[in-house]
Write a protein that binds this DNA or RNA. Sequence first.
DNA 1: GTGGTCTAGACCACA
DNA 2: GTGGTCTAGACCACG
Lengths: 136, 136, 136, 136
Amino acid sequence: MLLLTLNQGDGVPLYLQLVSQIKALIATGRLIPDEELPAVRVLALQLVLNPNTVVRAYRELEMAGLVYKRRGAGTYVSAGVTPYTNDECRKLLAQRADALLVEGRNLGYPVEHLIVLLRERSAMLKGGASDDKERD
Amino acid sequence: MLLLTLNQGDGVPLYLQLVSQIKALIATGRLIPDEELPAVRVLALQLVLNPNTVVRAYRELEMAGLVYKRRGAGTYVSAGVTPYTNDECRKLLAQRADALLVEGRNLGYPVEHLIVLLRERSAMLKGGASDDKERD
Amino acid sequence: MLLLTLNQGDGVPLYLQLVSQIKALIATGRLIPDEELPAVRVLALQLVLNPNTVVRAYRELEMAGLVYKRRGAGTYVSAGVTPYTNDECRKLLAQRADALLVEGRNLGYPVEHLIVLLRERSAMLKGGASDDKERD
Amino acid sequence: MLLLTLNQGDGVPLYLQLVSQIKALIATGRLIPDEELPAVRVLALQLVLNPNTVVRAYRELEMAGLVYKRRGAGTYVSAGVTPYTNDECRKLLAQRADALLVEGRNLGYPVEHLIVLLRERSAMLKGGASDDKERD
DNA sequence: GTGGTCTAGACCACA
DNA sequence: GTGGTCTAGACCACG
């Protein structure tokens, strides 16, 4: 079962959250070529979403060439695709980094503190218990 | 001049970004009671957005009891706002940090790379850039 | 169809008139829990005002806990709204009645004239007129 | 001392409340020709208003020919003016009547009940104790 | 179809 | 000058 985590309230469109998380799973090989994605209805049930939202996410992925559909069968990961260019990666990460920096600045934390925090959280996430997302 | 940084592309409504950032500035005492906030039109000019968007942010802050308005005069920080505890600050920052870490790991970036990126972006934010574009 | 009447000329913001009238309809059980309110655009058309004005009224009602929204679906009356007591109703009406009486006395109209006027206006409001213009 | 009652929160502009109340006082002879109105600052103090608001009300009255000003002396009621035409009276009263009718309808009160209420309140206002406005 | 956000720009009330 | 309300109309997310 796919480990996807949606954040309903933060303003980021749900289908985009899906797209980016699935992209990342493909980019890191956790979803391998020709692996089948969950059926739309199954994923919708699992994530408590409207199926159309999943449909839209899959459609975006298909248009990006990252997955392909076989009528009556399912949705599968494409082979040999690079979901992100290096530039895209950097942009995505820069956005996250900026969010951290801005929050830090507004709360009065210098960058060095943020870096310390980052190392701490990194150790925690790797170590195990986290109130947040996935692990490997 | 208020240091506020908007991220136009990340899906979070602009007025909410304003609200949470100003909330942080108040809760950490960087904006003190009865201090005047920038006029709606001034802030709108500064941030290059529509005055109504600022109006809406200020209105949310007013309803949350964080600011008060004097007709024809201006908008001011309320007194008696309960400041963020250190714990609350750390929680907010940990959320942001985790988001960065997870995205980084999904894209195959080690923590040390993220830290380099963080320093780069930090320099840029201070330099004045406020959007999510890259620049060398 | 919701019976709402706006008074464009009396200085009270339109969105507030909407809020208080819908509040009254809910608090007296004339709108029941989970009943769907008219769509924003529908009500805007019906009342001949800008959809954003209705949006604002609905938003205030939502923040007051009187209605809830389902994205892409509609706006619905919340359950568990504490209804107006008879006393509260009478107080609200007494305010309006007093305003009429005071104005009438200031202008030298006896109560009986006011009652005649009230009957006339009542017939007009039922007939469909919803503005403050006279008509014979 | 002028008996004026302002309703700060109801959306009706303060200066308009002043204008209409003073008009009514003139119309009913409670302010007689050449009687002096309170000085702007005095009235502003009494009503806890910005003096400019009073200035504006007096200016409107002057432009309507209802009062005149003697430089260095004060503001006085004009002679032989009719503040309201019959039509204007009816419009003002119709607005009040409509407000009562709409509130009554939204609260589920038939017109006849409103009329009963009106008589009750009328008796109360004349009798004495009222949580509201003036008397004679 | 629904509501949500944002822009552009109007006019008003108030200090 | 300040904030407040309203209009007109754009595009987006969601069912």
